[in-house]
Design a protein around this nucleic acid. Sequence first.
RNA 1: GGGAGUAUGGCGGAACUGGUAGACGCGCCGGAUUCAAAAUCCGGUCACUUCGGUGGUGUGGGUUCAAUUCCCUCUACUCCUACCA
Length: 839
Amino acid sequence: MSSRYNHKVAEPKWQKRWQDANIFKVEKKDNKKKYYVLEMFPYPSGKIHMGHVRNYTLGDVVARYKKMKGFNVFHPMGWDAFGLPAENAAKTEKKNPADWTYTNISYMRNQLKSMGFSIDWDRELATCHPGYYKHEQLFFLEMYKSGLAYKKMSEVNWDPVDKTVLANEQVIDGRGWRSGALVEKKNLSQWFLKTSNYSEELLNDLDSLDMWPNKVKVMQSNWIGRSEGAEIVFSLVKNNFSDDKHLKVYTTRPDTIFGATFVAISADHALAKKILKKDINAQKFKEEIKIIDSEKTKVGYNTNIFIKHPFLDKQIPLFIANFVLMDYGLGAVFGCPAHDQRDLEFALKYNLEVIQVVEPAKSKQNSNKIKNVAILGGGLMINSGFLDGVDNEKAKKEVIKRLEKEGIGNKKINYKLRDWGISRQRYWGCPIPILYREDGSVVPVKEKDLPVLLPTLGQKNPSPTKEEVDEWKMTTCPITGMKAVRETDTFDTFFESSWYFLRYCNPRLNNKPFLKEDINYWLPVDQYIGGVEHAILHLLYSRFFTKALRDLNFVDINEPFTGLFTQGMVTHKTFKDSAGNWVEPNKIIESKGNYFDSNNEQVEVGKIEKMSKSKKNVVNPSSIIDDYGADTARWFMLSDSPPERDLEWTDVGVASSHKFINKIWETCIKTKKYKAPHGLSKTNKFDSLIKSVSENIEKFHFNKSVANIYEYVNEINKSMEKKSISGDNLKRAAKDLCIIIHPLTPHLSEEIWELLGYEGFCANANWPEFKKNDVVDMIDLPVQVNGKLKGLIPSKNNDKEEVVLEKAKNLPSLKKILKDKIIGKVIYIPGKILNIVIK
RNA sequence: GGGAGUAUGGCGGAACUGGUAGACGCGCCGGAUUCAAAAUCCGGUCACUUCGGUGGUGUGGGUUCAAUUCCCUCUACUCCUACCA
């Protein structure tokens, strides 16, 4: 009888049994502690890739482990199903985006099921389903009512050839990806959410997320970009262009106000627009700067308006400058060339005064000559009237105090975080539920009329025709009965992913997005797992959304994700032929360190890079599952590389994982035949290994758990070979092995569970307990002389120093060294080390 | 320019709050089994060595009885961000 483990039989068998027994279906149980494991849901692009395999394997280890530890584990799955690729595929394949998407979903669902993930499939959702998106239309209406959603003009990328709006990723080097035409900026009225209302809270609450990687928190914190500074109101003199008497600027360096020698505004500033209307040269300037790279060349237009310095009897010029951004601060700055590199470059170009006002504490060079490099550090104030001699940090406060006293300025905290533009000019997205009445007013759709469905398409239409759109958008106002047209824009797809983790609680509920009592039980997500590429946008939007929904009284939580883990990428070798084309690694033949393609031509070895279709270095998970099985794929994903780092896919690595899967099976078969002799000492190695496997899973050190399991299996084999273990202890060790491998290789584990004669599912078994105190009693104590290892002596943790030292002195290696030396100091740390210092 | 991080054998990587550096795996070498091969099993594997030892965790220094671990210097690489006033 062949004892070989056959994954092709075992894996589908257990997947079916799990499904038939519904063992991963969960319900709220108030008396049981919950654990919510969530991986970022996939976009249904067609097939799963290795990145998914890695992501969902990591999550599944946690989910299965926590279940065995007694938690009520919530582990759902869904589809981020709206988005651009569906429209593109629809065009090239002449299909309806909905059909394309649902076909992909059913294929990918089968792929995921073949990996054996412990998912509650009854909670599956797809964001393109009206039953899902009707609720986010409701959220939008509530946000609109509360003022969180508003409309304003904003730029989009316009392809003049295809006559369509392009997403940022469709613009390559300033050209449309399809047409190749130069992309133009076009102003459209678009919807925004007031994320900026939450800047402070989003920043402050990062401190409470102590189970998030610091890296992600730093990224979000930089993105929110809090700065402290001042707003200063300048008076305008000689203004021939408008009635404006004042101009407000934002600065983080109010201390340098005495060094101000010009003021600059953006070409999009309200004042600049007024000037442009009356000054042809200014208009020309605005045209010119469109083609100037302001990063390299700073240019300005002297408006001939002058600004009165707030503390000096002095007037300084006002420029329109290409390096001033309209969408940060107030679009207006004062220039202090001595202490800002950009201002200095600008001043040198236009012959403006450079006045140093901060003297660095330890002036390294004669800093009184500023040439090309501005002084950026702190120091004592000079040339600054009432500030002279004061430390510049203190001077900042002094200036603000004075500004406030004179009513010409104030302290101001500013954020880089901008409002979230949610309008997308696309078909395959969630319709924005708004009507524009013929009298010009904006009318939200009535809640009872939700969902606003997408216009339906014929079988083979990738997007609606103009007639179809016109027919769809014509409607009447529900209040007045007047003619109205629908908003044709759809939501940014980040809108869907900002609340899907809530919807899993009640995925089929029709009249509400979810029940608050279920949210209060399951949320927040205890462990969220995904790629670091979502560190800012998706995670920040979800945090914002949660807070907004809290304020709209939908939920009671402040943060959606308690724990976050960001996994590394899956990488693979790349190859290029002589023509510079990428070649699939599986078509490469190696010979004596050289590599050849199928035409026997030598190829160049490229870098190890993230698996991607364009570099042809992808490995299809399904073929790996066919050849080696899901457990092998899972084991490989968890071995060697720590999960947060990149994992290099190698064929030998997969083969060796497969070998070990078989070795576990063979080992367990051997344990059944084991006949033990009498009178055996017990070993506690197994307890200590179970302890480390558990701790390493808790800490996401799965590669170490894998190493522990190797040791565990080797230990079983050694004990059987040496006949040094009793039958009962071996039986126990084999059962525990079966359990501790379960989160990693669940199919193999169930097969062994059955082999060993246990009832039910291993998936439902309890995680083994280990007795901490059993772990160490006798150890080999390292003995050092002057910090260098000289030998080992058997010792107990509670041995006295005299005992240990006496044993050490009797070591032959030490006798020789200590012969004619005087022992100075002795350091003894029980259970750790004995170090003898000699002279 | 700003920010975050990494550096340990031929390779992936271990080493708890400073206490036996290189666990575990891959690869390689040797052996067993086999007509032979594959598979499997056993042993070895940081370097040098006069076999007593000596050196060794990117570089140079420091603290300590003891440093991969703590502090300072420099170097290389990776990621994020970028006119943010």
